[in-house]
C-alpha cells in the first residue's frame, strides 16, 4: 500500500464544521485514480492531507506504511508525494525556466549534477525542449507552456505519486488533450502513480482505473468508471454529470433501447448504437 488514509477528519478550527468527514482511502503503486466532486466537496483539502501540508484533526495518513508525522522531515513526504496545485503557473518565480524547475530538487539538497539531470528529465517528461527553454524567463512563455514548467517543477523531485488538482482547467481543447495524454504516459511508461482531481467526469473517465466521487467531505462512491457511470441518478443529485457519451446511451436506454451504458470511447459507443440500429431495422423487415 503506497498511500493509506484511515478515518481522516479535518477542520480548520475547533468548533467549525468538518470539511473532511471520515475519509478512508488507499492508493497502490502505479494506480491512476481520479477524484471527482463538485466545488467545495473537499477534494483540494483531502489531497493536502496526503502530502502533509495539512495535518488531519482526527485519523491517520500513512505513506508507505509509515505515519506521516513519523517521517524525519516533511520534505521527505513531499518528495514522495508531488502535489501540483490549481493554476500552478501562478507560483513560478525564478528568472529562468531551469532555476524554477530546480527549486524543488535544490530544497532536497541534491548535487548540481543530479539537479541538472533531473531538470532535463522533468522537462522531457512534459515535452519541453531543454536547450531551447532552460535560459528563458518562465513569464514570457505561453499559458500552456507555463503550466508544463510548473508541473515539471514537481516532477523534477521524482515523486512516486503525482497529485494534480484540476490540471487542465483553463487550457484549450488541444492543450487539454496533450496534457492528459502526457499524464497518462507518465503513469504507464514511468510507473508514477497519479491522483487526478477534476469536477468534470469526462476528463478522468477513460484514463483512470478507479474513480472516487466526493460529496460534502465524504467519499460517496468508489469504483471503476463503468460502475460509477451506472449510477447516473445519484451523481446527478450531487451536482455531477456523467460524460455526454454516456448520457446519450443512458437517454437511449430510458427510451427503451437495450444499449449498454458501460462503454466510453467514442468508437465503442458508435459501434453499439449502430449495432442496435441495424438489429432494430432487420427485425422490422
Amino acid at each position: 500500500m503506497f498511500v493509506e488514509l484511515k478515518d481522516v477528519y479535518y477542520r480548520y478550527q475547533t468548533g467549525e464544521d468538518y470539511i473532511l468527514k471520515g475519509i478512508n482511502l488507499q492508493i497502490e503503486k502505479g494506480e491512476f485514480v481520479a477524484l471527482v466532486g463538485h466545488t467545495g466537496s473537499g477534494k483540494s483539502t483531502l489531497v493536502q492531507t496526503i502530502n502533509g501540508l495539512l495535518r488531519p484533526s482526527r485519523g491517520e495518513v500513512f505513506i508507505e506504511g509509515r505515519e506521516i508525522g513519523k517521517w524525519e522531515s516533511p520534505i521527505q513526504v513531499r518528495k514522495k508525494v508531488g502535489l501540483v496545485f490549481q493554476y500552478p503557473e501562478h507560483q513560478l518565480f525564478e528568472e529562468t525556466v531551469f532555476k524554477d524547475i530546480a527549486f524543488g530538487p535544490k530544497n532536497l539538497g541534491w548535487s548540481a549534477q543530479k539537479i541538472e539531470e533531473k531538470v532535463r528529465q522533468a522537462m522531457e517528461f512534459v515535452q519541453l525542449d531543454y536547450e531551447e527553454l532552460k535560459e528563458r524567463s518562465p513569464f514570457g512563455l505561453s499559458g500552456g507552456q507555463k503550466r508544463r514548467v510548473a508541473i515539471a517543477g514537481v516532477l523534477a523531485m521524482e515523486p512516486e505519486l503525482l497529485i494534480l488538482d484540476e490540471p487542465i482547467a483553463g487550457l484549450d481543447p488541444r492543450g487539454r488533450r496533450k496534457l492528459l495524454d502526457r499524464i497518462n504516459w507518465l503513469n504507464e511508461e514511468k510507473g508514477i502513480s497519479v491522483l487526478f482531481i477534476s469536477h468534470r467526469m469526462e476528463d478522468a473517465a477513460r484514463r483512470a482505473g478507479r474513480l472516487l466521487v466526493m460529496n460534502q467531505g465524504q467519499i460517496m462512491l468508489q469504483g471503476s468508471p463503468q460502475e460509477i457511470f451506472a449510477q447516473r441518478d445519484s451523481l446527478y443529485e450531487i451536482g455531477l454529470e456523467i460524460p455526454p457519451l454516456n448520457e446519450v446511451l443512458w437517454q437511449l436506454r430510458q427510451k427503451g433501447y437495450g444499449v449498454r451504458t458501460d462503454i466510453f470511447s467514442i468508437e465503442d459507443v458508435e459501434e453499439e448504437i449502430l449495432q442496435h440500429w441495424r438489429g432494430f431495422r432487420c427485425s422490422k423487415i
Binding site: R78, F103, N107, L108, G153
Partner: peptide, 27 residues
C-alpha cells in the same frame, strides 16, 4: 495558497537564520 504550493516543492519558511528566512520569502 502560494506558500502551500512552494512548501509542496520543499520550501521551508519557518526555520533557519534570519537571512535564510528572508531569502526564503522570494518564492
Amino acid at each position: 495558497k502560494i506558500m502551500k504550493a512552494q512548501q509542496a516543492r520543499g520550501a521551508d519558511f519557518e526555520s533557519g537564520s534570519i537571512f535564510r528566512r528572508a531569502r526564503s520569502l522570494v518564492p
